[in-house]
Design a protein around this nucleic acid. Structure first.
Lengths: 143, 143
DNA sequence: TATTGTTATACTCTATAACTATA
DNA sequence: TATAGTTATAGAGTATAACAATA
């Protein structure tokens, strides 16, 4: 059944890159991008943290996260408070409207993808659900 | 088992976006990007075609494909020949060295991902393999 | 001196709008 | 006039290098 892990890696890479291209392009109706959603989802699931910690958790470099946080802050979706003891650090928190948006989008977001998923049979959906769990562990492994 | 298709859509979107971020960032050792690989893979699988057809097949806009083709042409990985009867069109073909590179990379590419996949149990690999097929059909559906 | 975060800068990927050449 | 492709331009997302503030 499993012929070649390397071939699977290549196929998987192309599949996720192509799907991401669709997802990014089709989100123009939403107020936030997938990158912003991803950061907000992490803040929601793991609680407030410093920009450095969020960058590490999202596996991007600190300057990249600075930009994401700045854009979310401009939209009022996150708050930045000083660290209580270390003046170098700041704490990024999901704001009330950020939490609301996250909840709203969890209902309405990815309409294109949801529509297609609804046409799949239960077995395919179960497979995708397991795959999401596997992919998440792949990415969250230490480098 | 399948609780909510919309929730799955959100989880799947975040998972593929994060994995794509890794894959793009880690390919600096390769001569070509994932976008370029994707276009070359399509040319390899479906044969020579016009830029417009390749853009449609890859689900990007024509100007985006123009740039991808130009970069591949600069690298000598594709060839551009005039259309036999319609002077407006051109035919894009995978060059010999393009085909070679595709074959070589099929062995060595995605080392990071391959390494992680090799640590998975056979059941997880089978799940991913099925998931790749499902994701591919999702993206290739008509808009 | 080491750490945290930011600024400056640049590159890739993608899009839309406008243009050119051909049909 | 319509179509195929390109050029011009812009914006998002990411990176590295250099800087400032604090520990």
């Amino acid at each position: 059944m499993i012929s070649d892990t390397r071939a699977l890696a290549g196929d998987l890479a192309l599949a996720v890159v192509r799907l991401t291209r669709h997802l990014r392009g089709r989100r123009t109706d939403s107020r936030v991008s997938l990158t912003q959603m991803s950061a907000m989802a992490t803040l929601s699931q793991e609680g407030a943290m410093t920009p450095g910690a969020l960058a590490a958790r999202e596996r991007v470099q600190p300057p990249s996260m600075t930009r994401v946080i700045a854009s979310l802050h401009d939209l009022g979706l996150v708050e930045r408070t000083p660290h209580p003891t270390d003046g170098r650090q700041i704490i990024v928190t999901l704001s009330e409207s950020g939490a609301e948006l996250l909840a709203d989008e969890a209902q309405a977001r990815e309409a294109w993808l949801t529509e297609r998923l609804e046409k799949l049979d239960p077995d395919s959906l179960a497979t995708l659900q397991r795959a999401v769990g596997i992919l998440s562990t792949l990415v969250s492994e230490n480098s």
